[in-house]
């Protein structure tokens, strides 16, 4: 019970900080929009089948922009020394991790909720909303779990902003490939069985990395 109260307090704190500054979210949104625009020029996506190439564009936008938010998540705590405060408080380390990860999940989700319609409008994508949104939620869950852990790791090195993408992307490749394939499948209206392998992979990724990150997080922040 006390664990949930701690978890709630951490999430509430994260949301309050973001609500007052709105820095991270606005940076993520602008960045995601920029990625969409740049891809249009880089690949000249007029006339190609957007249901094949589009998912790649979408997930690059999601992951690049998500990394900005994740990087801020712990760099901010280190800058102000507030991480020490949080660690001194009698709070379970697991609650800190889950709280942070859930807050990051929400921030990335808000970014995606705004970016997805922009993607649909800018690229003229015919879209079935219902299953796709569920798949995106799943991809985002694994992304924020690994991302939060590696953000904590990156924040305790000297070159934080540079380190996070270097550490995160190699680990993230399977998740991104699976997400892109699933998104492709559902944009093209293929039956679920055609991409069920990818779906299972994504599900396993989410579960394993949530558990691993939850278990090892305390070693990252311990001083």
């Amino acid at each position: 019970m006390i664990f949930y109260r701690q978890l709630y307090a951490i999430i509430a704190k994260e949301l309050a900080v973001e609500w007052r500054t709105k820095e991270t979210l606005s940076a993520m949104l602008v960045f995601a929009l920029l990625v969409l625009v740049i891809f249009n020029f880089a690949f000249d996506l007029q006339g190609v089948d957007i249901r094949v190439l589009g998912p790649g564009v979408l997930w690059v936008a999601f992951s690049f922009s998500g990394i900005i938010g994740l990087g801020r998540s712990f760099a901010m705590e280190r800058d102000k020394g507030s991480l020490d405060g949080m660690l001194l408080a009698p709070v379970d380390r697991g609650a800190i991790f889950l709280g942070k990860a859930f807050a990051n999940f929400l921030f990335i989700l808000v970014m995606e909720v705004i970016t997805l319609p922009l993607f649909v409008i800018l690229y003229n994508v015919p879209l079935e909303w219902f299953p796709l949104v569920g798949f995106i939620l799943m991809g985002t869950l694994g992304f924020s779990a690994v991302g939060t852990l590696l953000s904590a790791i990156a924040a305790s090195t000297r070159m934080r902003e540079v380190m996070l993408p270097v550490l995160l992307f190699p680990v993230l490749v399977p998740l991104l490939v699976a997400s892109v394939k699933i998104t492709q499948g559902s944009l093209q209206g293929l039956p679920f069985s055609d991409f069920q392998g990818w779906f299972n992979l994504l599900l396993a990724y989410d579960v394993i990395f949530l558990v691993v990150a939850y278990l090892v997080f305390e070693f990252v922040v311990e001083e």
Partner: peptide, 23 residues
């Protein structure tokens, strides 16, 4: 300490790194 944690993440990723391109 953080390097050790990163090896766990890497090791946990190995099955996925093998499976994903195999699909």
């Amino acid at each position: 300490r953080i390097a050790a944690v990163f090896t766990f993440v890497g090791a946990a990723d190995v099955p996925f790194i093998i499976l994903a391109p195999r699909l």
